[in-house]
Write a protein that binds this DNA or RNA. Structure first.
Lengths: 190, 190
DNA sequence: CTACTATTAGTACCTAGTCTTAATATCTCG
DNA sequence: CGAGATATTAAGACTAGGTACTAATAGTAG
């Protein structure tokens, strides 16, 4: 009934991977060996103790949290901005952006990058999108880097309505085009 | 220099909140009191010990992980669908969807809901958005429920190009309108 | 039979606590 | 000022879930 060392260690790795909250004692019982054997196994496999594992999971969550905040505020990373004129952002397409089936980026992520860049380029407290006319000219795959360039095309001095053109590229190939008509609350800050 | 109990306990709560990884010893040093005092404080405030706190953070991360997967696949919850005809989804606007400053939903979330509904309504393995013409007719606030209704308007039998109209409502008031021109890979499944 | 690997056992020690009892310190009110 | 209440500190026994190390035993291959 009892498996050999190699098998046990393989299973041990898997078991801990999908449940890092298991103690050596529980593992020993699960595999029908002594606690000491489990500890030797962990030592050989360089698997840290329960508390360390839990801590790692917790710390990773903290990192993610810090990382997810800026993602929420602006989709993509703004690398250049000249208020009311131009702005550029980059977005690295990762597995969370693509369809599972074909690894093609979901449209709304490209839209989100462009839209939030259009919001950012406007020099106003409250910029909202009123209308948009967009076009996806080529599908973007996981691993590609999308560079979005926004240009303020027109500002209506009375209403404040601002038209922003955004073109997104992968290796100088246009993958997305969008005209955004933006609404701004206050007066134009110069 | 040393603050009173009330002040200390208030600060203690905050300190632990934004760094759950701090030990009683470090806290004692930070507040210039003994470790025992910190422990009494935690007891009074029902703050669990370090290891429990870390475990909670880790467990929460595990829960979140499970929860964040379905959110990725379809934005909003599909409540009705008739392939190649109509579909309806709802999206409850929460704080993660809005601008911090004014609690207005960021445009790309409404777009994402509409776009992913347009993708879903199409009876094909691979549906991609080619173009979209959208309009945000009223701003949506945190706490509101957006109901998106998609209608397939036209299917080009040769190219497979499909036009989907999406209207989104909050309490029967139109908040978003969009015409999506969708591209489908294979033939139309009937 | 010996050499080697694998397993088990036992001991001392560690961290970051809990729980309990008891001794001080400090504050407050009459 | 002093008594009582509240706050703080200390000390001791115990806990989980380990590490690190030494030593004994079991099983197997040459």
């Amino acid at each position: 009934m009892r498996m050999n060392k190699k098998e046990r260690q393989k299973l041990l790795t898997e078991t801990i991977q999908d449940n890092p909250f298991i103690t050596d004692e529980d593992l020993a019982e699960k595999f029908g060996v002594s606690v000491q054997t489990i500890r030797l196994d962990r030592l050989e496999l360089s698997i840290p103790e329960l508390r360390e594992r839990i801590k790692n999971v917790a710390e990773k969550r903290f990192e993610d949290e810090v990382r997810s905040l800026p993602i929420e505020e602006v989709i993509g990373e703004i690398i250049d901005i000249e208020l009311d004129h131009t702005a550029i952002s980059i977005l690295d397409v990762k597995k969370e952006h693509v369809f599972v089936r074909n690894q093609i980026a979901r449209g709304h992520h490209l839209f989100a990058q462009a839209n939030s860049l259009a919001v950012a380029v406007i020099n106003d407290e409250l910029a909202l999108t009123a209308k948009a006319n967009i076009q996806f000219t080529r599908s973007v795959k996981e691993g590609e880097r999308v560079i979005a360039k926004a240009k303020v095309a027109k500002i209506d001095q009375n209403s404040g309505r601002t038209t922003v053109e955004v073109h997104s590229f992968v290796n100088s190939e246009v993958v997305f085009k969008g005209d955004f008509e933006m609404y701004r609350s206050g007066k134009i800050i110069d």
